[in-house]
Design a protein around this nucleic acid. Structure first.
Lengths: 200, 200
DNA sequence: GTCTATAGGTAGATAGAC
DNA sequence: GTCTATCTACCTATAGAC
């Protein structure tokens, strides 16, 4: 089973860009990590910017697909929330650096980049979930929460501890392993927290 | 009322560093924004790294002081949580770029930098709040939540929407003004959410 | 303290041999 | 397709005049 050069470059680039961010990433380091020559990066992707876009789109699409799969699933609300937290936490535990990377670059690349992203076919679509929440509220089965904020809350509770991890880990004075265990125990904590917060 | 050159530099540096991040920030841009010559930056702060540290420490200390003031206040738990959300959201609405800046640089500067930060006298201290939560749980006045996670939840619910703002704003297709209004309405939403989540 | 000029180093990108 | 060598631009930092 062979890995194409293009694949090797993308893998190395993803690693370096996610760790260092666009500005601090070095083409030389990407080439070294991919085990190829620096010139080849330009042969395949022309410029650092284009290579970055390729990496970012790949990550973004994968993220969107996973999110939308859960958001659009045919499940009762509570089960869907539980499925979301479980699946999202899995993703984050496996790739702890991903959320800060995405958010970071979106903050810096400016409005044009965001617009370009949002014109793609694959993008996060929270509408099915928002609609479902509205129906539950109208039926009086959950408290009268604002659906937009509830979705925001779900995402915040899962993602923020990974994004702010260096700060929390520094304050709590725990090592990497302990912090990841805390994140494991956090799943159930989040599910219970949301459940109690919205029950009628 | 005169502003010293050092002050002018720090103000300009804070602006540029928070917007662009360390790696993408340019000494020339800082000098321009401060209305002084590039050489003066080095006269006052020797290097880009030292200037960055000066800015970061200033921001970090201010953040810690505010947080600790609320965490250590002499208030019943629910009032303290409400005070925290109010004050924290105020800070974030006034400086929307601050959290991503801090988190971003903490992610990239590495463990040594975090250790250095945590050895400072001024740093966030959640212990008073955590102790208070434990007491309320033991007294049966709130649900049996994990205090660490509850504090994490409070911070997550407030800060994340500002950090991930470009993404959300892109998805929700709203302009800056509308998004800030959403954040205003979010205060009460968060307070209600937490209140319901932990009430006995 | 503040400026101009420039040194010194580095990074992205290209040219051209193989 | 892959490599080596090099160009060009830019950026931090310093030297030195005022």
């Amino acid at each position: 089973m062979e890995i194409s050069t293009e694949e090797k470059i993308l893998n190395a680039a993803r690693e370096v860009f996610t760790q260092k961010g666009f500005a601090a990433a070095r083409m030389q380091e990407i080439a070294d990590k991919a085990g190829i020559n620096k010139g080849l990066l330009h042969y395949y992707f022309r410029s650092k910017n284009k290579l970055f876009h390729a990496v970012f789109y790949e990550v973004f699409d994968q993220f969107s697909l996973r999110i939308n799969e859960v958001f659009g699933a045919d499940l009762p609300l509570f089960e869907k929330i539980e499925a979301f937290v479980d699946q999202y936490m899995d993703t984050l535990i496996a790739n702890p650096a991903l959320p800060s990377f995405m958010i970071n670059e979106l903050n810096q690349k400016g409005e044009a980049f965001v617009k370009e992203l949002m014109s793609r076919k694959t993008k996060p679509n929270p509408l099915p979930l928002i609609g479902q929440i509205q129906m539950e509220v109208q039926a009086g089965r959950i408290r009268a929460v604002n659906p937009f904020h509830l979705v925001l809350n779900m995402l915040s509770l899962c993602a923020f501890p990974f994004i702010a991890r260096p700060l929390f880990q520094g304050i709590a004075q725990v090592d990497d392993e302990t912090y990841l265990k805390l994140m494991e125990s956090r799943r159930q904590e989040i599910i219970d927290f949301i459940h109690n917060a919205i029950r009628a």
